[in-house]
Write a protein that binds this DNA or RNA. Structure first.
Lengths: 233, 233
DNA sequence: ACCGGTATTAACATAAAATTAATCTATTAA
DNA sequence: TTAATAGATTAATTTTATGTTAATACCGGT
């Protein structure tokens, strides 16, 4: 087993499914761990720090949602991707998984080919910042003038001085810098950075903008009064 | 199905989500088409020329970003709005999204009410300013002689000199320039730019017109005494 | 339970935009 | 030609959005 292989943890109470998944994913070169229940799964996750967890929603005792919440509470797993396994036809509204911290879900039954390509897509998208900590290439880095925004590391360099930004500030910067010149309304920003259901006060965005300007310099973000903010071109 | 209904194309590999979206949007009177992958989606887009495309980012094979790029390459879709569907926590895909030509993001899961109101807002934008079949506009920019009005950036260029206009002035200009030659009455202008509920005095419009003329030049807006204003053809 | 940092709220200040007021000018109809 | 009216113009005022600072709530990590 190559030690740079992605580690995947499978948690499902049906051993048939575990076998199926293990077989197909091992064949692709991933390193697989498996557990038959949530408790055991959490233990393994803690021990092996997997890149990806496949988590069955329907399990006796501790179900997938609950397990997911517990997993998300472990700080060392904050970069781990969690994908739920759900039975086809399960009502979409029932799938509270995203709220519990899940990243995606995969419906069973799933054909091996589809399974593999979805796993690959998941790891491709998130894998960038879970593997290869040393890679120097600009994958995931955006350069804008004297700024370099590194989404893997949540770091922004201003004239080559590294800055660690808090989450919200970073995501706000990421959003507006994604299209320099475009004006993002407060609604845009709320909906993208905070989400459509959270309600926060009027001054929240201003304060974050101010902190950003303080850190990266006033010259990058301009206000369009009555409309929103934009990242200068 | 009314044939004046907006056409919406949904592209997502999860049939549950397709169902959820289709159900909620059909109920609102939209005409829905759906595809389970990018290739199929592009085909349908080509065939039906939808007003709006909801596009999942995470899909096996061709992902949303790639699909979007291919869609944007089709000239007949240059007026189509593309909104990405993203899972919460997938914040990092945003960059690529706008760069690929997306107009907005909708985070899953989304409550039906929120979904509908966001879709409505998106389509409102479409109808208001882009439904001009003949004009030489492209990508949110409206060209009128020596003026270029960019509503994404909230900027007006006069002979290539950029101007930042205050909100009301900008919206006023946007309105009257949307149909050169047509006379907009004061009532038209009030109801479109100010809204039917606010009450402001007689001279408000004059003053805004004056400021506009001052900034973009007198030659663009003419007064039709006793009737209203028009943007010269 | 506590600490350190982040997120949010609150309160107030400030600058810009919107509106009004006052006055002037041009156009039209008697 | 002149009174009446609509609009233009300018300055003054009000309103609003945002900036700013500090205080507080919150949350993950020890």
């Amino acid at each position: 087993m190559r030690d740079d292989a992605y580690k995947i943890l499978v948690i499902d109470d049906e051993s048939d499914i575990i076998e199926f998944l293990t077989y197909n994913l091992k064949k692709e070169g991933y390193e697989i761990f498996s557990a038959l229940n949530g408790r055991e799964g959490i233990e393994l996750a803690r021990k092996h720090n997997p890149h990806l967890i496949l988590l069955d929603i329907m399990m006796p005792e501790m179900d997938g949602i609950e397990t997911c919440e517990k997993l998300r509470a472990l700080p060392k797993l904050n970069k781990t991707i969690i994908a739920f396994l759900t039975a086809r036809g399960e009502d979409y509204s029932q799938i509270a998984g995203f709220e519990a911290g899940g990243d995606d879900y995969i419906t069973k039954p799933v054909k091996p080919k589809v399974l593999v390509s979805r796993i690959r897509a998941l790891l491709k998208r998130y894998g960038k910042y879970t593997l290869e900590p040393d890679s120097q290439e600009q994958a995931g880095k955006i350069k804008r003038g004297n700024l370099v925004i590194d989404r893997e590391k949540y770091i922004v360099s201003v004239n080559n001085r590294d800055l660690v930004l808090p989450k919200k500030e970073f995501e706000l910067l990421l959003l507006i810098s994604s299209k320099p010149g475009k004006v993002f309304t407060r609604d845009d920003i709320f909906s993208q950075v905070w989400g459509d259901d959270v309600i926060v006060g009027d001054r929240t965005i201003d304060v974050h903008i101010r902190k950003l300007r303080e850190k990266i310099g006033d010259e990058h973000i301009s206000t369009v009064k009555g409309v929103g903010y934009k990242f200068k071109e």
